[in-house]
Design a protein around this nucleic acid. Sequence first.
DNA 1: ATGACGATTTACT
DNA 2: GTAAATCGTCATA
Length: 205
Amino acid sequence: MILPRRFHQRDPVTLAKALLGQTLVRVLDDGERLAGRIVEVEAYLGVEDRAAHTCGGRRTVRNQSMWGQAGHAYVYFTYGMHHCMNIVADRPGVPTAVLLRALEPLEGIDTMRRLRSDKIASHRLRDADLCSGPAKLTQAMAIDRTLDGADLTRRGALFLEKAEGVEASRMVVCPRIGVGYAGEWATKPLRFYERGNENVSRKES
DNA sequence: ATGACGATTTACT
DNA sequence: GTAAATCGTCATA
């Protein structure tokens, strides 16, 4: 079953926790299906959040997806070489989102490994190296700006299937990664991951 | 038109 | 641990 619009129409912290355990599915142009279980996420809280791209109400060409309807993808390009994928939360005009930081590979693992190996020299990547970071998972799932704005509640190139969630007792809650520039917002507990999962990008910081 | 900067990853000391 | 890679985006002028 595909996760419905209503699932996404919540505040980003609630959505972030609910997304842990759910399945992200990517269908390639040739029909091959790649899938991963979401095991690490971060919530971005919108205009007040100094770490968010929509901080201060900024609305730009790049971040316009964050201002739109929940359940769509917000994919951005950064560091001149990497893509990161978010899931838009809340309602139109409230620009919040959840960043996907790590997946546990489920389907299409050989293709994921090829997509990752094409870019880097090292051969024989472990399964846990395929999707253990926000830009690694977009590489392994062939996600780029062409999928920005994609509706994740429809069976297309990218969508979310319902699976068993992760209980609060098995979640680690800690500060977000890589947002040291955001002042007091850098230390807020907005990162969530499944305790003990080997695919997580880093242990608690 | 210009310049500074990343919601990162990888390789190397 | 530190540094390089690499360029679209956005604020400033």
